[in-house]
């Protein structure tokens, strides 16, 4: 029997606005937090997998109507959501993942109980959940390193901005840019060890 092929979208939820940042470091006023930390702040507690599902379904219905909604309904699943890093892994069937991706792109606010402006960025499209997980771990580490670098440079900024900033950024920033594509190729060796759908 032919296996049903899926795509796993690794998404980041970014919060571009300064308002209602409920988790603010107690020691500092909000403006001093570096931008990269502000954008990648933890999600509110009400955000969970169910809310993400609702968001995607509503988005797809809005953009593609009943047709698109029906096409993705069978395979859509939120596999993983971490409020701490605002990262989620979403599973869709391979034929229709672009519908879900477009719906995510057109999202501007989290739905009702949270109601907060957000930007959802797809950072990886993967054929297996393992690759998506590895990428999520790598990116989490990277964002921590960037935050540290930004904090360091903002501390130093009064004294020597010019020398501190490029150094701090140059450390581990280069491997985050996905210039050559963010999609995995289908490899014959890949085994999708998830067949409950």
């Amino acid at each position: 029997m032919v296996r049903i092929k899926h795509r796993y979208l690794l998404v980041n939820i970014l919060y571009p606005d300064t308002k209602s940042s409920h988790l603010r470091p107690a020691s500092k006023p909000g403006d001093d937090v570096p931008y990269t930390v502000q954008f990648r702040r933890p999600s509110p507690d009400q955000v969970n997998g169910g809310l993400l599902m609702r968001l995607i379904r509503d988005g797809v219905v809005e953009l593609f109507g009943d047709y698109g909604s029906g096409k993705i309904a069978g395979s859509l699943q939120v596999k993983y959501f971490s409020p701490a890093t605002s990262t989620a892994t979403i599973r869709v069937s391979r034929e229709h993942y672009r519908l879900v991706w477009a719906a995510l792109t057109f999202t501007t606010r989290l739905p009702r109980p949270v109601d907060q402006p957000c930007v959802i960025q797809v950072v990886r499209v993967s054929g297996t959940i393992r690759k998506a997980e590895e990428e999520a771990i790598r990116r989490a580490g990277l964002s921590i390193r960037r935050a540290e670098a930004a904090a360091k440079s903002s501390n130093v900024s009064g004294v020597a901005t010019a020398s501190a900033t490029p150094l701090a950024v140059a450390e581990g920033d280069d491997d985050v840019d996905m210039f050559n594509g963010i999609e995995d190729r289908d490899e014959p060796g890949d085994v999708d060890d998830d067949d409950d759908g």
Binding site: P16, R98, W101, A102, C118, Q121, V122
Partner: peptide, 26 residues
């Protein structure tokens, strides 16, 4: 505003939905 910006690959995907092949979108 910042809310209106999207990642480069998200924009490429949008262009693909609108009919531009992925390489050309890139």
């Amino acid at each position: 505003a910042a809310v209106g910006c999207r990642g480069p690959w998200d924009a490429i995907n949008l262009a693909m939905i609108w009919g531009l092949p992925q390489e050309w979108g890139f």
